[in-house]
């Protein structure tokens, strides 16, 4: 992956990418699953660096940090500032990230985490497994009823979502309409 693409993805999340470059990047995103996965991880990092520390109610920060960092280059010595998403990601983009960075971020976040989630020891953090997956990630969409029926229900229920939720659900529907080829993750389940 080129450095330029990563920088563009970072700028996109910051709202700093020029409009004329956005369209080109979006086309690349649609074609390239790897780019989309990277963008997804950057989004997670946004949560860790900005969202979660500001909102102490969010749990499992330490685990999600490890997961997000696992997918980025793990051998850099660069330190990551904890108060700037843009700077942090650009730093990661440029040179990867060191285990010490993870520790720094974790310590910083743990000071305001109110839950009792145990924080991994430093030694544990330095041996992050490459096979670690993001705990927050669900296996995907799954269906007991037919996709067509679920689509019908979502359309009917749509007006009863609060406005931002409606926009979120509609965005997901047009991207992964149940029953269309874009919905890649249907999994049968008989019970929860």
């Amino acid at each position: 992956m080129s450095q330029s693409i990563k920088e563009q993805l970072s700028a996109l999340l910051d709202g700093e990418l020029p409009i004329e470059e956005e369209e080109l990047l979006f086309r690349q995103l649609e074609k390239n699953q790897e780019y989309r996965a990277i963008l997804g991880r950057y989004t997670l990092l946004t949560e860790l660096i900005q969202g979660s520390p500001a909102d102490p109610a969010v749990l499992s920060v330490s685990e999600r940090i490890r997961a997000a960092l696992t997918e980025l280059a793990p051998h850099s010595e660069r330190r990551m500032p904890t108060n700037s998403w843009s700077t942090a990601v650009k730093g990661l983009v440029g040179a990867g990230i060191a285990a010490s960075v993870a520790i720094l971020a974790l310590i910083s976040m743990n000071t305001i985490e109110r839950d009792s989630t145990p924080v991994p020891a430093i030694a544990e953090l330095q041996t992050v497994s490459d096979s670690y997956t993001v705990p927050a990630v669900e296996p995907g969409n799954r269906m007991v009823i037919t996709p067509a029926r679920l689509t019908s229900y979502l359309v009917s229920h749509g007006e009863f979502f609060n406005a931002p939720s409606r926009l979120t659900v509609d965005s997901h529907m047009v991207s992964k309409m149940p029953g269309t080829p874009a919905d890649q993750h249907i999994e049968a389940s008989q019970d929860d």
Binding site: L12, L13, F26, L29, E30, R36, A37, L39, G40, R41, T43, L44, V134, V137, E138, G140, T168, S171, H172, V174, S175, K176
Partner: peptide, 11 residues
């Protein structure tokens, strides 16, 4: 950008 389960879609 819509993000769910680490996957991003553009809308």
């Amino acid at each position: 950008l819509h993000t769910c389960a680490g996957v991003v879609d553009v809308v």
